[in-house]
């Protein structure tokens, strides 16, 4: 069994010592600090990014709050504006309505006056027509020539009886 042959024991121990010591010192002084630095740097970067993210999130929350506040403000303002407009419109409508009513009343009274005037006029022409018809009728029946005043008197007396 070659493992138990002591011929190369010293050589193996010597080279083991040389290589292992070299490896230990090299890793200890060069490689491991490098890896540690890289990982530390990464951890720092991650922490930094996390804190930045947190800050940004807080800022975003603030902005969102602000936006919501502004939206509610705007809603309130709009509601108020709508109310005001409704009230002013109602007022305007009522004033217009009342002015229209007045106008209408004036128009109605005017119309009434016109009607009365027309009626009177018509009544007058009716009286004339009556006297004319009467004159014609009398002349046709009796060959009598009646003067206007007689006819009118007769009509007036007759009229008084009817009434």
């Amino acid at each position: 069994m070659p493992q138990l042959n002591p011929e190369f024991f010293i050589s193996q121990l010597f080279w083991l010592f040389v290589f292992f010591s070299f490896l230990l010192i090299f890793l200890w002084r060069v490689s491991l600090p490098r890896i540690a630095t890289v990982m530390e740097k990464r951890q720092n970067k991650i922490n930094e990014n996390l804190s930045t993210a947190k800050e940004l999130q807080e800022q975003a929350l603030k902005i969102e709050k602000n936006i919501n506040f502004q939206i509610s403000n705007a809603k309130e303002e709009t509601d108020e504006e709508i109310k005001k407009t409704i009230i002013s419109l109602q007022e305007e409508a009522s004033t217009k309505l009342s002015s229209l009513e007045k106008e209408l009343e004036v128009k109605i009274s005017n119309s009434e006056k016109e009607i009365i005037k027309n009626r009177d006029l018509q009544m007058k022409t009716i009286n004339e027509e009556i006297s004319n018809i009467t004159k014609i009728t009398v002349s046709k029946i009796s060959d009598l020539k009646l003067s206007d005043s007689v006819v009118n008197q007769a009509i007036q007396s007759f009229k008084g009886k009817i009434n």
Binding site: Q12, F19, L27, S31
Partner: peptide, 24 residues
Amino acid sequence: YNISFTNSSFAMLITVLLITMFLT
């Protein structure tokens, strides 16, 4: 003392080289 560089030492050398080179 016989401290000959042997095939065992060569394997150790390769091992050390591989580790140091890889990690560096």
